[in-house]
Simulated scan of single mutants.
Amino acid sequence: MKLKLLAAVALATPLFLANSVNAGNPQDLQKLLSTGECVGCNLKGMNISNSHLIGADLRGANLSGANLSGANLEGADLTNANLKGANLTSAYLTNVNMKKANLNGANLTRAHVIDSNVYGASMDNLTITDAEIYNTAIGVGGEDLQVPDWD
């Protein structure tokens, strides 16, 4: 019995270690939430949903796979940030700087993207179902397109 338990623990340990290596840093999340600054932070896969991150400095942060659904990122700086596969459903992205950010595979369903800078951002396989996108250049078919304001 003890041998089976020991074998199970030995087999499972690498799985737990692999997951912890690939996860974001909880201290970085606490820093972001308390100061609004987290330049170069590792927030990979973290749950930051419904957070008020107005004006947050997240330059170069790793937010890949993070849950930012419902977050208010108004005026945030996400220059060179990695948002690959991030969930930005219903997020508020007004006046956000996403210059040279990685938005590949990001989910922007029902997001509000207004007057944001996406110059040089990578945007392959975006989900923009029911998103409100105004005055923000988005990549379509490899070409920049200025989305008109239809109000």
Rank of each mutant, 00 (worst) to 15 (best):
M1H: 11
K2F: 05
L3Q: 10
L6Q: 03
V9C: 07
V9S: 09
V9E: 03
P14M: 09
A18S: 13
N19V: 05
Q27H: 13
Q27N: 11
D28R: 04
L29Y: 04
T35M: 05
G40K: 08
G40A: 12
N42S: 12
L43E: 02
G45Q: 06
S49G: 06
N50V: 08
S51Q: 15
H52N: 15
I54Q: 13
A56Q: 03
D57V: 02
G60L: 05
L63Y: 00
S64N: 12
G65Y: 03
G65D: 05
L68Y: 03
E74F: 06
A76N: 00
D77M: 02
A81R: 02
A86W: 02
A86P: 02
L88T: 02
T89D: 07
Y92E: 08
T94W: 03
T94Y: 05
N95W: 13
N95D: 14
V96C: 01
N97R: 09
L103H: 06
N104P: 06
N104A: 15
L108S: 01
R110E: 13
A111R: 03
H112K: 14
N117S: 09
N117K: 12
V118T: 15
Y119K: 15
L126F: 07
L126R: 10
T127L: 10
E132P: 00
E132Y: 13
E132W: 04
I133D: 07
I133G: 06
Y134T: 10
I138C: 10
D144R: 12
D144L: 13
L145P: 02
Q146Y: 14
D149E: 12
W150H: 10
